[in-house]
């Protein structure tokens, strides 16, 4: 199969995905997809396998069985160049994971130069453009430790965007932030969604899911329990487990 990305298929398609850690089966047959340009919010109780599903999509976790197709390319196929696929999938972590020994600009240029083989000048120009996009143009020379959590997370988003990804994965991007810093990060994500970015967002921010999400997926116990339009899943949940979860978080 040709390993070139296609635009006429879902951005992400997961079929019958199983994942076990030892005896602990964490994903029990997940079928899941994200269309191009779609914003899908994944919600569910802690330990339900949301992070594991997200991390399987760029194979930070090795699936036990099942198929994961990204823009028509089967990434569970041994012959697929994973590094190449990953440059098209931006990932934002709960703990930011900026490189603490590099300043902000170098955080944004490192992978452009090493993985995308861009020249330094081009990489820096792209980095500065993305820093401006997240409202941190003046922080190019700062080190991560000199920034607030919210600023660090926005730098992390800019770092992912600098690779010109076709889609972005977010794993609880605001969970490690002080409440007053959450808004800035969510604003950046909303702008991204408006610009048409394909997004898979694991989140506990129900307001964000309702406002920005095209679809909400509720997971529990390693399966997708319910999914649909945000107003349906969040406003009128059909399953008891969804109702139970929402009554606790809303």
């Amino acid at each position: 199969m040709a390993a070139t990305p296609r635009t006429d298929v879902p951005a992400i398609e997961v079929r019958d995905l199983h994942k076990s850690f030892g005896d602990n089966e964490v994903l029990k047959g997940i079928d899941f997809h994200v269309d191009q340009g779609e914003v899908v919010c994944v919600i569910g109780p802690s330990g339900s396998g949301k992070s594991t599903l997200l991390r399987c999509v760029n194979r930070l976790e090795e699936p036990t069985s099942g198929t994961i197709i990204v823009e028509g390319v089967d990434i569970t196929d041994e012959d697929t160049d994973l590094d190449k696929v990953r440059t098209r999938i931006g990932m934002v972590f709960q703990q930011f994971n900026l490189f603490p020994h590099l300043n902000v600009l170098r955080n944004l240029t490192l992978a452009q130069i090493r993985a995308k083989k861009r020249g330094r000048a081009e990489a820096e120009e792209i980095a500065r453009r993305n820093l401006a996009k997240v409202g941190l143009a003046e922080k190019a020379d700062a080190f991560p430790s000199q920034l607030s959590g919210g600023q660090q997370q926005r730098v992390a988003i800019a770092r992912a965007l600098s690779m010109d990804p076709d889609m972005m994965l977010f794993d609880e991007p605001t969970s490690a932030l002080d409440p007053e810093l959450v808004g800035d990060v969510l604003d950046v994500m909303k702008q991204l969604a408006r610009d048409g970015m394909t997004m898979m967002v694991v989140t506990h921010e129900m307001g964000f899911a309702r406002e920005v999400g095209d679809r909400v997926v509720f997971m529990d116990g390693g399966v997708v329990v319910e999914q649909g339009k945000p107003e349906d899943v969040l406003g009128n949940p059909q399953h008891e487990r969804t109702q139970g979860f929402l009554s606790k978080v809303l």
Binding site: L60, T87, L110, R114, K116
Partner: peptide
């Protein structure tokens, strides 16, 4: 561990991840 994951998720090869991160 998150440092390696961040570098790999950006598409950096294991060798570059080791050397630069």
């Amino acid at each position: 561990k998150g440092q390696v994951e961040a570098a790999r998720s950006l598409g950096m090869r294991p060798s570059w991840t080791l050397v630069s991160v």
